[in-house]
Nucleic acid binder design. Sequence first.
RNA 1: GGGCGCGUAGCUCAGCGGGAGAGCGCUCGCUUCACACGCGAGAGGUCGCAGGUUCGAAACCUGCCGCGCCCACCA
Length: 875
Amino acid sequence: MPPQYDPTEVEPRWTRTWIERGYFHAEAPSDRPPYCIVIPPPNVTGRLHVGHALGRTIEDTLIRRARMQGFEACWIPGTDHAGIATQVVVERALREEGIDRRELGREAFVERVWSWKEQYGGEIVEQIKRMGASCDWERERFTMDEGLSRAVRAAFVRFHEAGLIYRGERLVNWCPTDRTGLSDSEVEHEEVEGELLTFRYFLTEGSGSIQVATTRVETMLGDTGIAVHPGDDRYAALVGQTVTHPFDGRQILIVADHHVDRDFGTGAVKVTPAHDPNDFDIAQRTGLPLMNIFEADARLNDAVPAEFRGLGRYEARTAVRDALEAKGLLVKEERPYVHSVGHCYRCHSEIEPWIAGLQWFVKVSGLAGAAKEAVLDGRLRFTPERWQGPFVAWLDNLRDWNISRQLWWGHRIPAWYCPDGHVTVATEDPTACAGCGSTELTQDPDVLDTWFSSQLWPYSTLGWPDDTPELSFFYPNAALVTGYEILYLWVARMVMSGLFLVGDVPFHDVVIHGLVRDQQGRKMSKSLGNVIDPIEMIDRYGADALRFSLARAATGGQQDIPLSEEGIEAGRNFANKLWNAARLVLRAFPGGAPTPPPPDRLTLPERWLLSRHQACLVAVDAALDEYRFADAALALHRFVWSELCDWGLELEKGRLHGTDAERSDATQVLAWILERTLRLLHPTMPFVTEEIWQRFGIGDSIAIATWPSSRPQQADAAAEASLTALQEIVTAIRQFRAQHHVPTAHRLEITVGVPDSEQAALRDLSERIGKLTGVSTMAIIPGDSPKAEGVVRIGVADGFVEIPIAGTIDLDAERARLSKRLAEVDRDLERAGTKLANEGFRTKAAPEVVVAEQDKVTRLGVERDQLFAQLGELG
RNA sequence: GGGCGCGUAGCUCAGCGGGAGAGCGCUCGCUUCACACGCGAGAGGUCGCAGGUUCGAAACCUGCCGCGCCCACCA
């Protein structure tokens, strides 16, 4: 084994081998219990970013552990066609060739997207493989492949038959850049600094006027009414009258509607039904007409006066303002005026509420009840739990889901129309109208929201709508791992549709992780230059390093996850540490299954290591069972580095260099511990653990080895106590050396006092301790022996260390050390004294706490006397 | 407007009733026979602020201040 672990050589080899040998393939049905996770399908044209890397790390940790625990572990990978995102990417590429999508025509364009997908798509799949993800690649799916397309149609038809999908003309969230409608969930609201203008409309009859306020003054060109509150005395007389539009002379009716807030602004609202959802509702209630003033690209259309036609919405805003001012109608301008504006989640353009013709909607409220019930009765659990509240609140406030997208890339809506206006909805392309038998059918030109197919993912990938063995065996999935940003967009819809279409929740546990950010908590963005490219990190430090650092950072407490290159470097160092521990342990290991010697041949460090290893296992199991990945990583790091390497191996080196029998015993027990630790670590760091594990020659792959079982009998409190005492002795000597600048070359002759019960163990290890501390001879005497002459005595638990003064110590340094310790002792004594003097404490605190405090006083008192004596000796 | 999370060592975070921890960074010393991607020692903290509960609070409660996020038909 080389002294440095080299992931660049190891990782590609194992990635290939694991897949070739089919370890990750799962069968259904199986004698083993099922454990299934689906990957949140990334966009085909996407590249792996750290957010994906985090999700995949978590999923792989769960899946690999489940596989080792004996589950039929199935992790289904795949990609999403991602309607808008992909279409936009391909459109941009075409534009660079000077081609417009509309010139190309629908069919040719869609073909181009497919070939784009074949050529450039799927890179992300290769990147996921590089992470070591143990997906069942034989089950890889794409949301637009044949089977999943069938599932989409089946779902649409079933929803439609149940009356949960309908067609209607409503205002939709229109993105003028992508030229498509969006669902409410795809609109991101953001505070912007805008303006609030107040202007006046003159009454048609008489000379009176009414003032209205707006943040979007250009929409007044499409005003068809003014609304006031029905109980508002100020305007009661005006309801039913009209005002005259200043630019085109239209008569606009003043109506009463409860929606109006009397206290806001002037208490009168301009009503633009075709361009504002509230106004649309008011118009529905009061019968005001709709007047559309925008083209699809948010330029003013021919419905507006000639002077404004063709202006973009922002130009129009200024133009209308100026025109109002010119007519003396502008009353007030407030600027900046902060308010919330919806933006497209893909291109970030401002959303334009617009009537985009007949659209298909899912009546989600009809599905929400069952989803809420599943949460409340515990079939669906959230980790962290705090997401349950927002999830239920969201379900309680659902509006219908617009699923029509005016795009070409996606699942075409399975609805056909005949010239008489009948609608035929079917899973197979119909030959005749279901209403009148007409053969003149045209399919709806729109495609479905990309999330319509994503919501089917946990069961469409298992073969739904067919009743496949996979579906009955692996559904519901064990867990779903995702970021909170798509909780509503995706997770909620999977739950609702799964309950309705399949009859059960799609998964039991929703594991929600934060957004990966940089170390200052900023979002990673190209413009900030703080993007960490996971593939670059894998190249530089290895996949295990990246995975470990992500797991280590993914604590439950905070909302987001800070990641830095230094953190990944630390992961790399850890992999190397493990590698070197293995080098040491396996140097004399003959191979085969490690067999620890019988208990009576175990040394103290060995019993201690077994005990610590058991504690580590318990901690790792508990942490992973509860999705506390950081805690699991931390426990393993602590055990391997601080316990196994810093103490265990250091103390065992004597035996590793000892007689054949000693070496054999030590190697076997250390190898036994190491091998089990590798298995515990394998789900988090698959590559380095596999590479080391191969040295044992006990199986084909650690990936299909058995998860270590708990050995409670190995917990050894006595060994832990003894070793802690020993650590104190070693540390005391090292501290002394450092404080007095005693070079290691200067061998010390010391005396150690310990209770009789500890003497044998200490004697066994004295040589090793000597090596660790530069001590040549170590006399061992009872812990209560009086202090010798001419030595410095350092107190440790139940004993002391005595180091001769002659030739070793720096008197000033020693005085400083003693004084400092004395100050600490005094402070602690005073604290404890006050506490014990408090009657409340003595009577109300737990008795053992009081006793511990009294013991402390006794102990500190003795130490204080000794410190004084030594200070006196030094003069 | 409603809700959530977070303010603990220079940085990132654990701790969540018995008087404070890790990793990284920093300082000092080490070619100690696995590892300098290392070993040893050390410095560094009125645990955001103010009240309250308690014998005892970083931890529990209330209020305030700061930072971040989610939801909402704030004309």
